[in-house]
Every structure is written in structure tokens, then in C-alpha cells.
Deep mutational scan, measured.
Amino acid sequence: VLKALERTRQLDIPDEKTMPVLMKLLEEAGGNWSYIKLDNYTALVDAIYSVED
């Protein structure tokens, strides 16, 4: 979780936006981090930006 938060902080995305999206992605992935961690957490960042749209 810390590495995911560090990555999104680099992009000026607050933890308050990151955590709900991260928890949803983890739930959808059955707790499997490998998809979320791919390409420096690209799936997480993309999911956060899609929620903002």
C-alpha cells in the first residue's frame, strides 16, 4: 500500500482519492497485487483518473 501511495503522491494525487480506488481494484483483483503493480501502478493511476472524469 505504501508504494502505491508513494507513486500517486508523485503525481499530486491525495491519499483520500487513492485509497478508495485502490481498495476497489484490490477487491476486483481478488487481492492480487500483480495487476495493480504493473508498469509502476499504471492501472491504479488510470483508475483514479477515470473516476475523476
Results as ranks from 00 to 15, higher is better:
V1I: 15
V1W: 14
V1E: 06
V1A: 07
V1C: 12
L2F: 10
L2Y: 11
A4T: 03
A4M: 02
A4E: 06
A4L: 04
A4N: 03
L5R: 00
L5V: 03
L5S: 01
L5W: 02
L5G: 03
E6V: 07
E6H: 08
E6C: 10
E6M: 09
R7N: 07
R7A: 12
R7C: 10
T8Y: 05
T8V: 04
T8Q: 03
T8W: 07
R9Y: 04
R9I: 05
R9F: 05
R9D: 05
R9P: 04
R9Q: 08
Q10L: 13
Q10R: 08
Q10F: 09
L11Q: 05
D12L: 11
I13M: 04
P14T: 05
P14N: 03
P14H: 05
P14D: 08
P14S: 06
D15P: 03
E16L: 06
E16C: 14
K17Y: 08
K17A: 10
K17F: 08
K17I: 15
T18P: 01
T18F: 03
T18Y: 04
M19I: 15
M19S: 02
P20T: 10
P20Y: 11
P20N: 08
P20R: 12
P20G: 09
V21C: 06
V21D: 00
V21F: 06
L22C: 01
L22F: 03
L22A: 01
L22R: 00
L22D: 00
M23I: 12
K24R: 14
K24E: 05
K24I: 05
K24T: 06
L25P: 00
L25E: 00
L26A: 00
L26I: 09
L26R: 00
E27I: 10
E28Y: 09
E28V: 09
E28K: 09
E28D: 12
A29N: 15
A29Y: 15
G30W: 06
G30A: 10
G31P: 02
N32Q: 08
N32H: 07
W33N: 00
W33L: 03
W33Q: 00
W33E: 02
S34I: 09
S34D: 15
I36Y: 03
I36L: 08
I36A: 01
K37S: 15
K37M: 15
L38H: 15
L38V: 10
L38T: 11
L38C: 07
D39N: 15
D39Q: 09
D39H: 11
D39T: 05
N40C: 07
N40Q: 06
N40H: 07
Y41A: 02
T42F: 13
T42P: 00
T42L: 14
A43P: 13
A43D: 03
L44H: 01
L44K: 01
L44F: 03
V45P: 00
V45L: 12
V45N: 00
V45M: 07
D46A: 15
D46G: 07
D46H: 12
A47H: 05
A47Y: 06
I48L: 10
I48K: 00
I48W: 02
Y49S: 10
Y49I: 11
S50V: 10
V51M: 14
E52Q: 13
E52M: 14
D53I: 12
D53V: 14
D53R: 10
